[in-house]
């Protein structure tokens, strides 16, 4: 059982929690994730470690409520407990001096690029961050990302904040302007990461994405998270979660992410019904 020390609500469906897991906090590095099981009936779901504080013994997680597990997690408050937190899992980001690094974060993926952008900055890279959301209310961690970036660009799909359009539009412009880019690091919806790969591929700009496929154990036992990278099957949990974006078979990954669409809907409906009964 792990205690929630702090909770912040970014938007009605996007929440941040700081969890007391001293052993994980001690070991966590940028790019890694944890598996969370909210309660005894819960699924095991992967969540990126957004921040970690060894002195306080905590890690920070940010999530969007999209299914039963994240919905139940979002209902928990400060002082409540999470049944299982396992980690730190996955390989840490290879952080070194590249030169100019562009960090692209879409939606809740902004939270995943924040620790990596910070680490790149600490290694004296010139960090350009591009963050985007559907609308301004869903734009998270803007100040945090700005504080670790040399340049920050904001986009929203509806134009309610920053530039109207997608993060990849800004990336395209930067490349067209002739900006020298040594590395692109992108996390967001899978479709966004696919487009980022398509944008940088013709220019042969090294591009890393952090994938978020369906996982169960997170330690290489089940193969649910298998992805095709450069024609080879890799397990995102132990071989990743970061891969060379130009080698990832995104179409297969997108199809695999839809595997339990019906069940996820059914489960969420039941969950909402229970939450309603609970409220009344």
């Amino acid at each position: 059982m792990f205690k929630i020390a702090r909770k912040r609500i970014w938007a009605p469906t996007i929440k941040e929690i700081e969890v007391e897991v001293p052993e994980i906090a001690r070991k966590a590095k940028p790019g890694q994730f944890v598996i969370v099981r909210v309660d005894e009936r819960g699924e095991r779901i992967p969540l990126t470690i957004v921040d970690y504080d060894n002195s306080k013994g905590t890690i920070t997680l940010v999530f969007q409520e999209v299914g039963t597990s994240t919905r139940k997690l979002g209902m928990l408050n400060e002082g409540d407990y999470i049944t299982d937190v396992v980690g730190p899992l996955g390989n840490p980001t290879e952080v070194r001096k590249y030169g100019t690094v562009v960090c692209v974060g879409g939606g809740v993926g902004i939270s995943a690029i924040y620790p990596v952008a910070r680490a790149f900055k600490e290694h004296r890279n010139y960090v350009i961050s591009i963050i985007g959301a559907r609308t301004k209310d869903l734009l998270i961690l803007e100040d945090e990302v700005r504080s670790v970036s040399d340049e920050l660009y904001v986009t929203t799909d509806d134009g309610s904040k920053g530039r109207k359009g997608f993060t990849t539009d800004v990336l395209k412009d930067l490349i067209k302007e002739g900006r020298h880019i040594d590395l692109v690091y992108a996390v967001g919806p899978t479709i966004m990461m696919k487009v980022v790969a398509d944008v940088t591929r013709p220019y042969k700009i090294k591009t890393i994405v952090s994938l978020n496929p369906i996982m169960v154990d997170g330690s290489g036992m089940c193969g649910a998270c298998r992805v095709r990278v450069g024609g080879q099957v890799k397990f995102a949990c132990v071989d990743g979660p970061e891969f060379d974006a130009h080698l990832v078979d995104f179409d297969e990954l997108l199809a695999r992410l839809r595997m339990y669409k019906e069940e996820e809907k059914l489960s969420l409906e039941l969950c909402e019904k229970r939450l309603k009964i609970h409220e009344t």
Binding site: R41, V216, C222, E263
Partner: peptide, 17 residues
């Protein structure tokens, strides 16, 4: 694992499908 550990046979009472 889905069945023995996560009890997917009892979905949707248990969350894992």
């Amino acid at each position: 694992i889905r069945v023995n550990l996560m009890r997917a046979n009892e979905f949707p009472e248990y969350d894992t499908p």
